[in-house]
Amino acid sequence: MKILVVDDERDVEDLFRQKFRKEIRNEGLELLFAYSGKEALEILENNNPPLVASVFSDINMPGMSGLEMLGIIKNRFPQLQVSMISAYGDSENYQKAMSYGAKGFFTKPVDFESLRKEIGEILRS
């Protein structure tokens, strides 16, 4: 099971790998990372339907924003689950994300327990 994480902060990769080390080791979770929306879309385009089960993306990124990317993904791969992570947990961003078809909405600092639950659900589905 592949999950794509999109964030311009490169240390997010280490953070996720460590946080989900158990899931990676024991439950067959495979984490893919992209550092911009553009990069993420490229990864998704490689396979159709994409090999990725779910996408977790930051909203505030240089270049293409997470919400923008969400719109594109939902347009191209309507089935793909996309959850948004934002440092700014305001209702406007939330509303927008939901209207674009986001599966979940997480605010920073990320509550990894709820995230783990979410990922666990994906893994078990």
Binding site: L15, N60, A87
Partner: peptide, 16 residues
């Protein structure tokens, strides 16, 4: 926001 990001990392990595 700029401060928030590194602080999150500090928090998360120290937690980890």
């Amino acid at each position: 926001h700029e401060i928030q990001n590194p602080l999150n990392f500090v928090t998360n990595f120290s937690e980890l």
